[in-house]
Structures are given as structure tokens and as C-alpha cells.
């Protein structure tokens, strides 16, 4: 059963590559692309550079975290088992750490350090979220239409906070589709 043995080795290699990235990816999934590409394309040669780029583009358009590209690579090299192993390696280590922190945090409710952390972290969250808005806007090309749609969506959600986001997202798609058909964007 040589095939089984090599599949086992592949699964172990997947874990060995992805689990450290899970813990090292501070600041979201952006940080894992470079090391993941190096390991999967250059070192292990599981996929070609073009395949990696294609998976990256597809992952951007899928729901969920963009680090799920790690599980796509897992599926390419070891099928469904590879995908599941990759998912566990990608999300269990960081979640375990977060769980420990959340537990300490939530059990300290009302204590001085907790009040201080809560009030101290809120402006940092505000700064980070707004920085994220700016980064995503720039990433999307920073077009006038993008700005208009995002401001419209924010205003709409402020006006009707219980509104389901689905029509808002769908509206964004329709507006862009219309603009594209009219030749306003490319």
C-alpha cells in the first residue's frame, strides 16, 4: 500500500506547513500567502505558480476567510481528506489560543484590568476597522463607483440597522453590472 503511505506523508506535510501558519498569521490572512506559496509551489511542488494564482483569485470570491486557499491546496494534493486536514491545521491552533484568551477575558468581567482593557481596546478597534476600510478600498482599485457604493451601503445600514445585508450586497452587484454594461467601468 505505497499509495496510502505517501498520502499519509502528504497529510503530515500539509499539517506541518499549515499549523504554524495558523499561529503566525497575525493581522489576518494576508500574511500567509508568501510562506504558503513558497512551501506549496517551490519546496513541495504540489501545484504550479499559475495554479496558485488561480486559486488565489478564486479564494477571493468565495465566502469565508481567504486563508481557505490552504484547504484548496490540500484538496488538490490529497482530495477531500487533504481538505479536511488542511482546515483543521489552519483553524484549530489559532482558535485554541483565542479560546484561552477569551476565557480569561470573559471571566474577568467587572475587574479593574478588564474594564481598563475593554475601554482601552475600543479606540484601537475603531482605528483598526477604519484602517481596514481604507485598505480594502485601495485594494479594490479605489474607483469612484466603489466609493459611492460603499458610502451608500454604509448610509443605508445606518438608516436601517436591522436591514438584511443581502439586498445591500446584491444592489452593489447590480450597480456594478449596469455600469459595466454601459461601459463606465472595465
Amino acid at each position: 500500500m505505497r499509495e496510502n503511505a505517501s498520502t499519509g506523508e502528504t497529510l503530515l506535510a500539509l499539517m506541518a506547513i499549515l499549523a504554524p501558519l495558523s499561529i503566525a498569521s497575525i493581522g489576518g490572512a494576508m500574511g500567509i500567502y508568501a510562506p504558503l506559496q513558497h512551501e506549496a509551489v517551490t519546496v513541495k511542488q504540489w501545484i504550479t505558480p499559475q495554479e496558485f494564482l488561480d486559486l488565489f483569485a478564486v479564494a477571493r470570491f468565495l465566502p469565508g476567510p481567504s486563508s481557505i486557499i490552504g484547504a484548496m491546496i490540500g484538496m488538490k494534493v490529497a482530495g477531500l481528506t487533504g481538505a479536511i486536514v488542511a482546515m483543521l491545521a489552519l483553524y484549530v491552533p489559532s482558535s485554541a489560543l483565542c479560546y484561552g484568551m477569551a476565557r480569561v477575558w470573559n471571566e474577568g468581567q467587572g475587574k479593574a484590568w478588564n474594564v481598563a482593557l475593554r475601554r482601552g481596546l475600543t479606540p484601537i478597534a475603531a482605528g483598526l476597522i477604519m484602517a481596514g476600510v481604507l485598505a480594502l478600498f485601495q485594494l479594490s482599485g479605489g474607483k469612484l463607483l466603489t466609493g459611492a457604493v460603499l458610502l451608500g451601503a454604509a448610509a443605508l445600514l445606518t438608516w436601517k440597522s436591522k436591514m438584511h445585508p443581502f439586498p445591500i450586497l446584491f444592489g452593489g452587484a447590480i450597480i456594478f453590472e449596469a455600469a459595466w454594461l454601459m461601459g463606465l467601468i472595465d
Binding site: T122, A126, V133, S140, T146, L150, G172, A173
Partner: peptide
């Protein structure tokens, strides 16, 4: 292509939703 355009539009609206959360975080700060 039409799918790519639609996804870009969805992304734009999604950024707007984040902005809305950002504004409430700014207010709390």
C-alpha cells in the same frame, strides 16, 4: 467577466458595511 464585475460590486457594498461598524466603534471611542 460578468461574474468578476458582480463580485467587485459585492465587495464594494461589503466595505460599506464595515464602514458602518467602524463608525459605531468611532462613536464609542
Amino acid at each position: 467577466k460578468p461574474l468578476q464585475v458582480a463580485m467587485t460590486g459585492i465587495a464594494a457594498a461589503a466595505i460599506g458595511m464595515i464602514l458602518r461598524t467602524g463608525v459605531s466603534a468611532v462613536k464609542a471611542s
